[in-house]
């Protein structure tokens, strides 16, 4: 087994383990930290695929920004009073059914889908490099790129409007 394959198996093991720990751990802070670990191992996968830009952006955006906000919110929650009443048997059964259905759908989709054949001779190993990504994004997919930026701008304005203090509201 060559080193890239064994490293891939090691990373995959870590990914699955930390993802399972996100669900299993009882302390929400631990869950968030395991989720961050999952993002790191996913970035490791991106690097194995020679997509360095994607790996760095995954760390910056998810681990560096979004998960910090998650931690922020969870730290402010008072976790001493575990409100167990929300976890009745009914919600547990409903959650199991929903989760099981999603699993069946995903599995069915996986069975039906045709995975494109991989040709090592034709494959360009530099495809994930930032220069190629930039050319692709700004030449072939310029319009979708600009549309996405407008969408993000709208979301940003919306967030600012929601967070804005209204006239007459109490000034803290």
């Amino acid at each position: 087994m060559n080193s890239a394959i064994s490293f891939f198996y090691f990373l995959s093991f870590l990914t699955v383990l930390s993802a399972v720990m996100v669900v299993v751990s009882r302390n929400p802070i631990h869950s968030v930290l395991y989720l961050i670990l999952t993002f790191f191992t996913l970035s490791g996968h991106y690097i194995l695929l020679n997509a360095q830009f994607l790996a760095a952006v995954n760390i910056i955006v998810y681990a560096g920004a979004i998960m910090v906000l998650f931690l922020f919110v969870i730290m402010f929650l008072n976790m001493k009073q575990d409100n167990e009443e929300s976890k009745t048997n009914l919600t547990k059964i409903a959650a199991t059914i929903v989760g099981g259905t999603v699993f069946v759908i995903l599995f069915g989709a996986y069975r039906k889908s045709i995975i494109p054949a991989f040709d090592p001779q034709q494959f360009d190993s530099q495809i994930g490099m930032i220069e190629n990504l930039g050319h692709l994004l700004f030449r072939d997919y310029l319009l979708p790129f600009e549309l996405v930026s407008i969408l993000l701008l709208v979301a940003m304005v919306g967030a600012v409007m929601l967070g804005k203090r209204e006239i007459g509201e109490r000034h803290f």
């Binding site: 961050i36 952006v57 910056i60």
Partner: peptide
């Protein structure tokens, strides 16, 4: 690395965890 400055930026973004945790 061809993403050198992004790497630095990512590591800087992670610096917050030590303090928060």
């Amino acid at each position: 690395s061809n993403i050198g400055i992004l790497y630095v930026f990512g590591v800087v973004a992670l610096g917050v965890y030590g303090i928060m945790v």
